[in-house]
Amino acid sequence: MSGASRWVFGGGLALSGLAGLYLASRSGEGTLYWTGLVLFGASVFLIFNLIGGAFDKAEGRPPESYRLVGYALVAVAVGTVVFHVLSPWWWAPIASNWHYIDITIDLTFWITGVAFVIILGFMAYCVFRFRHREGRRAEYEPESTKLEGILTVVTALAVAAMLAPGLFFWNQFIDVPEDAVEVEVVGQQWSWSYRLPGADGRLGTADTRRISPDNPLGLNPDDPDGQDDIIINGGPLHLQVDTPVKMLLRSVDVLHNFYVPEFRAKMDMVPGMVTQLWFTPTRTGTFQALCAELCGTYHAYMRGEVVVQEEGDYQAWLDDQRTFARLAAAEAP
């Protein structure tokens, strides 16, 4: 760097440091406060480096940027791990039977985390140890079949360690138990409706082509199974705790995705077909349902609610709901 550009750069840094201080003092708290402090700190650090570089140059020493690179690599590795450990942003406590998914994620974090730190650490070591020095030459070694073989085997084992539980639990995820209660969720821009099978335990057939203002879910009025189906339009869905649920997912217009973060499970709703997922709610409470597949302008506001209750409360709620037959009768006076 030439003398003039050094002065220009240093002046700019000084200004940005002052701006940082000003920002921090004016805002008092919050993001801008910290941003100001970081800006100030970074400017001071860079100015010191600039001065150090000028001295090095004056004394004819080569600039030692390798230190910065090596420390940066270590800092990225350590910083990533520290951020991961201290992060206040973490998944919500689970409310379904899919603990295994969390366990597999944790396992994957461990394996990949270790590999990440080892690779970055080794890079940092190389940066310090094999930086350019006068008169040194790199070693000429085209390949090492043995080393590459060992690394292949180790990597393959690590991958298998993640894949095996993954496949095992995927099998559970797609294998719906016989005794699961069927619940239908219907998505449309931009709200959710639900349908419960009623007293006979069976959902009646439905078809998008039958949808009309009187029949918002398109049920088949001639299907006896459908007469006692309970239709919930707009309100929250209630589920009974510790009872396996098989959700049948339908959409009448575009793709949606029914996603309750606490249940971990999600599945797209595709117009023209019925998709499904299953889980067992394991704790009572009220949970938010989100739409997780882009469905148009108001995608972010397509929220629903799922209330998980003990058996008694659930029955009390269920008795209050109206069946398809009663709704139809009310509509046709």
């Binding site: 994957t108 990440f116 995820f173 971990r264 997780a292």
Partner: peptide
């Protein structure tokens, strides 16, 4: 690449996909 190992593993992808 490491986070790809999360998303490629079907069951881990279930809570993470589309997020």
């Amino acid at each position: 690449g490491m986070t790809g190992l999360f998303l490629g593993n079907a069951v881990v992808d279930v809570p993470l996909s589309d997020t």
